[in-house]
Structure formats: C-alpha cells, structure tokens
Computed example of a mutant assay.
Amino acid sequence: MTHPHLNFRIEPGLRSEHRAQAAAGYWNAFARKLRYPLGPQRRAIAFVRRVLDSSHAISAVSVDGRFLGVAGFKTPRGAFVGGDFADLVRVYGPFGAPLRGLLVSILERPCEAGTLLMDGLFVDASARGSGVGTALLSAVESQARACGLERVRLDVVDGNPRARALYERQGHRARSTESIGVLRYLFGFGSVTTMLKEVGEPPPHAVPA
C-alpha cells in the first residue's frame, strides 16, 4: 500500500537493514517501562535487535527506503519482540538473565481467541504528524481481518496520553483499566488500559440486533 501524497508506503515485515533502527526506536518508545527489565540501554537495544521477529511486524518506509516506523503484533506462534531465556543469557549473562526474565514475564500478555494483540507501535521522530501512525494502525486492522480475527487489542499505559488519543481517534475503545500497585515504582507507570476495536465481519449466522 503506497501513500504518494505522504511519500511513504506500508509493507509487511521488517527489512533486514532496518533492524538496528527498529530496535533503537523500540527502546526509545518503551524505555520507561523496560528500563529495569532490559536496561541498560546498550544491552537492551542489543537484546531487542536479536529477538525481533519480522514475520510479526508491519513497517512504514519512505519512498527512498528510510525506516519511518513499525507496528508489531503477537500471535500464538510468536511476537514482534519475543525471544526466550537463552536469548537473555546471551545478552545479560547467566547471572543477569534470571531476574530480567522474571520482570519481563510480569509484562507478558496472553493472546485471546479471535483477537490480534498488538506488540508495540512507534513512529520515528522525523515522521511524526505525517499520518504514519494512523496508517500503521489501519494496516494492523487489515492484518487481523486477513487472519480471520474479529478485533484488535492493545494496552496503553497511563503515562502515554498521546498514544491513547491516537487509538481513540481510530475507534479503539477502553475495555478495562488495571492498577499495578507498588510495581509502578519498578515500571514507571501506575495503570494500564486495555483497548479494543472490532474489525471483523459478523459471522453468517449472526442475528441483527
């Protein structure tokens, strides 16, 4: 899908030459909540770059090939930022990996039937305000429909009102908000709101209300 008036296109996956920039962008976007699980910055970016799964990504790329942003998603088969304990050991060593694995597990969200779970969306600073974020969200919805799923789910923390405003403009609605209690001092946010958008066609047997 090309957007000539904005000079960028949306494409499936993540180009190999964009992995380093995507890893750094992911860290910049989510460092507030990941600083303890994955920091310091140098190691965090190395870990994210190592585990990025391009099959669970949708990218925004300028017409001249520059990386502009990415939307990741999670399925029962994997996640945009996945990896396992062995990957943590390779980056943080046998003594640093166990605690980080525990902290990362606290942030894990399970997949739900009929739902595409978003696994991070960010736009490069040079492309903000140009419609890239909106285009990536639309592409995620198309991905969900192509997979035969009915809705898109995302979670937004209380310290990110700009992102929540974007999601609401695109039709995502809050389903629930949960406080994380004393863990707020560890992850840098106090609550997380789950948002949903219905994207699938109604099943053939559905009876209109």
Rank of each mutant, 00 (worst) to 15 (best):
A97E: 07
L117I: 13
A60N: 04
Q143A: 12
V152M: 12
D84I: 11
F122A: 06
E141H: 04
L88P: 06
P98M: 15
V156S: 08
A97R: 08
A113G: 09
V51D: 06
K74N: 11
L103T: 07
R90F: 04
A139N: 10
P94F: 14
S130T: 03
R145L: 08
G133A: 01
L68R: 11
V61Y: 08
T75K: 06
D119I: 05
L52T: 01
P76K: 04
A97G: 10
V140E: 03
V63T: 14
L34E: 12
F95L: 15
Y92L: 00
Q41F: 11
G131C: 06
D87L: 00
M118V: 09
I58D: 04
G72Q: 00
L102H: 04
P37V: 14
A139M: 09
S54M: 05
A163K: 14
R90D: 04
R50E: 03
V152D: 11
F67W: 15
F80S: 03
R49H: 06
L38E: 14
L116M: 05
V152P: 10
P161V: 07
G101A: 05
L34P: 05
T115W: 11
K74L: 11
G120A: 09
A113M: 10
A97Y: 08
E108F: 09
V70T: 07
D119R: 08
S54L: 03
G83Q: 14
A79N: 03
G159Q: 09
P110F: 10
A44K: 15
A139C: 10
H56Q: 01
G101N: 06
L117D: 14
V63Y: 15
R164Q: 15
E141M: 04
P37S: 15
G39M: 08
V91D: 00
L68E: 09
V89P: 08
S59Q: 13
F85A: 07
R151C: 00
F95W: 14
F73M: 06
A60T: 02
S126V: 12
D64R: 04
V91K: 00
L52Q: 02
E108S: 09
S126Q: 14
G83N: 13
G129Y: 01
S105A: 13
C111N: 08
V132M: 13
R43H: 10
E141C: 05
A125L: 13
V104M: 13
E150R: 11
R49C: 02
D84C: 15
G133V: 00
G101L: 08
A125N: 11
V48C: 12
P94A: 15
R128T: 01
G72W: 02
A57L: 01
G133D: 02
L102M: 08
P40M: 11
Q143K: 13
G114C: 08
R66F: 04
A165C: 02
V156L: 07
R164W: 12
L149G: 06
V51A: 07
V81I: 07
T115G: 09
S55H: 07
A146W: 10
S62P: 14
E112G: 06
D119N: 07
L88G: 09
L38M: 15
L121C: 08
V157L: 11
V48A: 11
S105V: 07
G148P: 01
E141A: 03
V132L: 11
S59H: 10
A139H: 04
A79Q: 00
S105Q: 10
G133K: 03
P40H: 13
L34V: 09
